[in-house]
Amino acid sequence: MSKRDYYEVLGVSRSATEDELKKAYRRCAMKHHPDRNPGDAAAEAAFKECKEAYEVLSDGGKRRMYDQHGHAAFEHGMGGGNAGPGFGHGADMGDIFGDIFGNIFGGGGRGGPRRGADVGYVMELDLEDAVAGVEKRVELPTLAACDTCDGSGSEDGKRETCSTCAGRGQVRMQRGIFTMQQACPHCDGQGQIIAKPCKTCHGAGRVEDEKVLSVKVPAGVDTGDRIRLAGEGEAGPAGSPPGDLYVEVRVRPHAIFQRDGDDLHCEVPVRISQAALGDTVRVPTLGGEAEIRVPSETQTGKVFRLRDKGVKSVRSRGPGDLYCKIVVETPVNLTAEQREILEKFETTFTGENARRHSPKSSTFMDGVKGFWERMTS
Rank of each mutant, 00 (worst) to 15 (best):
E8Y: 07
S13G: 14
S15V: 06
A16E: 14
T17W: 07
T17Q: 01
T17H: 01
K23I: 10
Y25N: 01
R26K: 09
R27A: 14
R27I: 15
P38Q: 14
P38N: 08
D40C: 11
K48L: 13
C50I: 07
E52Q: 12
E52W: 03
E55I: 06
D59A: 13
A73R: 06
G77Q: 06
G80F: 06
G81F: 00
N82W: 07
A83R: 08
G84I: 06
F87G: 06
I96Q: 09
G98H: 09
G102Y: 07
G106C: 04
G108D: 00
G111N: 09
G112K: 15
P113C: 03
V119R: 15
V122H: 12
V122I: 15
M123G: 07
E124M: 09
E124W: 11
V131K: 03
V134S: 14
V138P: 00
C146L: 11
C146A: 05
G157F: 11
C165N: 08
A166F: 07
C184L: 13
C184Y: 06
H186R: 07
I194Q: 10
R206I: 12
E210G: 08
K216N: 12
D222I: 10
A238F: 01
P242K: 10
Y246W: 15
R250Q: 15
R259N: 04
H265W: 05
C266I: 06
T280K: 04
G288M: 00
A290M: 09
T298V: 05
Q299T: 13
K312S: 12
V314I: 10
R317N: 01
V332Y: 10
L334E: 02
T335R: 12
T335G: 15
E340N: 11
F345Q: 03
F345C: 04
E346W: 10
T348E: 09
F349K: 00
T350V: 14
S362D: 14
G367C: 03
V368W: 08
K369S: 01
E373L: 02
